[in-house]
Design a protein around this nucleic acid. Structure first.
Length: 429
RNA sequence: CGGGGAGUAGCGCAGCCUGGUAGCGCAUCUGUUUUGGGAACAGAGGGUCGCAGGUUCAAAUCCUGUCUCCCCGACCA
């Protein structure tokens, strides 16, 4: 992508009403635009980040046999009356009346709908287990939206749902999702910690949240600091059940609090095993060897549109964003400081084409702007690698490769540029 | 929902107290000179002052109402 052809409306000054660092940087880098309170447009740059996340989420879900589908955003009140949540969900639910006076709503979540779907099609224990997910826009009419997409009313969520034959199998599925989430966040470059959450109305159920620890986070969690450098991916169910980490709600209920420390954090994922709560209210049962059984269900959410903000909170400096490789809207940022010099521009064009041909995401700043503006835009946007082609290209046939994170710069000869760049993108530093 | 603050050019703000018909910086456009860290000079364009009433010869300014946005707290991915 050429910068001259890509719409990135960067701002020099911060919007006055923005308090959180990530919110500020997302607006200044032209990633998002507020439409009204808690509702945002994702501009081209921001949408690329979102797509990186979505692609990774889809990849890992698909390879784990979880079926992608797409349920509608608008739901009928009927199914919510069956679960009795139409009356209890409260003002957070955006209610809509259509021209025939039918009560509709903009879905805040999809347990009811997936249960109705399961009930229609799943008739035998031989059809279990089943796992579904979709990535969809949700609406929750938050009391107070804030911090940009961090606490938005309209947001994009990945929600998955599982059906199992019984609690034991349900727990197995739950465990799989637990590990899937750790792997996913790990691959996104976001170090989350699993946290036990209150088990809800029905006793014996399971719930964990996945939090990113950052001082600017909205949530508070309590944990044994031993967990901070723990690898959870090989945990067994009983270890998961007994994690010494707690959401603040849960923390109030427990005893033996002395060795736990409090951290501020951002909640990025939440998984529940709620059992037969919805399947039984929908009279959803399947035939088995032992007669009718009510499927055991779970749901598994990830706040997709919150992740970019969380990543920025984790990683930025005074000049702008510093993207982890997995989320970065581009892998390389090529900066031509001498577009009037035909040799320099030809070289950049060629390098740009060659990198593109290798399916590496590159943005090429071919604009007729001064160096200072190009550098500051590049730092603001935060692509991990900056390739700078300027004076030293003419003088001694060299270009610079600069790492956004620590400003480490190396100069390399033009002849080796392509190989070196590919190598640096591939490596894991 | 309670408490606080703000709506004036695309963005950031001044002007309001003490009414006289709108200004600054950034951005944009034109020209010249510049070009390795948000350039300089010269010129230009852009605003029914959130909206609706009212007071007045005259309202961005005073009064009333209303809408919106933000911040702090109790709810949530």
């Amino acid at each position: 992508m050429k910068f001259s052809n890509f719409f990135i409306p960067t701002l020099k000054e911060s919007p006055s009403d923005v308090k959180m660092r990530s919110h500020d940087l997302m607006i200044r880098s032209g990633m998002i635009r507020q439409e009204t309170s808690g509702i945002y447009s994702w501009m081209p740059l921001g949408y690329r980040v979102l797509k990186k996340i979505i692609d990774k989420v889809e990849e890992l879900h698909d390879e784990n046999g979880i079926n992608q589908m797409l349920m509608p955003t608008i739901q009928s009140s009927d199914i919510w009356r069956i679960s009795n949540r139409y009356d209890t969900y409260g003002k957070e639910m955006l209610r809509i009346i259509d021209r025939n006076d039918k009560d509709l709503l903009y879905g805040p979540t999809n347990e009811e709908m997936i249960t109705a779907i399961g009930k229609q099609y799943i008739k035998s224990y031989k059809n279990l287990p089943r796992k579904f997910y979709h990535i969809q826009t949700k609406f929750r009419d938050e009391i107070r939206p804030r911090f940009g997409v961090m606490r938005a009313r309209e947001f994009i969520m990945k929600d998955a749902y599982s059906f199992d034959i019984d609690s034991e199998n349900g727990e197995k599925t739950y465990c799989e999702f637990f590990k899937l989430y750790l792997k996913l966040f790990n691959q996104l470059g976001i170090p989350v910690i699993p946290v036990r959450a209150p088990s809800g109305e029905i006793g014996g159920n399971l719930s964990h949240e996945f939090h990113l620890i950052v001082s600017s986070g909205e949530s508070e969690i309590f944990l044994d600091t031993k967990l901070l450098d723990q690898n959870f991916e090989n945990f067994e169910l009983n270890q998961i059940l007994n994690l010494d980490s707690y959401t603040d709600d849960y923390y109030k209920e427990i005893e033996n609090k002395n060795y736990f420390e409090k951290f501020r954090s951002i909640e990025l994922g939440h998984i529940f095993l709620f059992g037969t709560k919805y399947s039984s209210s929908f009279n959803f049962n399947v035939d088995s060897e032992n007669g009718k059984v009510v499927p055991y269900m779970g749901s598994y959410g990830i706040g997709i549109s919150r992740i970019p903000a969380a990543a920025i909170e984790l990683s930025n400096d005074k000049n702008g964003i510093i993207w982890p490789k997995a989320l970065s809207p581009f892998s390389v940022h090529l900066i031509n400081l001498n577009i009037d010099d035909s040799e320099c521009s030809e070289f950049c064009e060629k390098l740009y084409t060659e990198i593109n041909e290798r399916n590496i995401d590159i943005i090429y700043d071919d604009r007729n702007e001064r160096p200072g503006k190009k550098f500051s835009d590049a730092d603001l946007i935060g692509i991990p690698l900056q390739i700078i082609c300027g004076n030293s290209f003419k003088k001694n046939r060299e270009i610079s490769i600069l790492k956004r994170a620590n400003k480490d710069t190396i100069n390399i000869e033009v002849e080796n540029a392509l190989d070196k760049i590919i190598k640096m993108i591939g490596c894991n530093e």
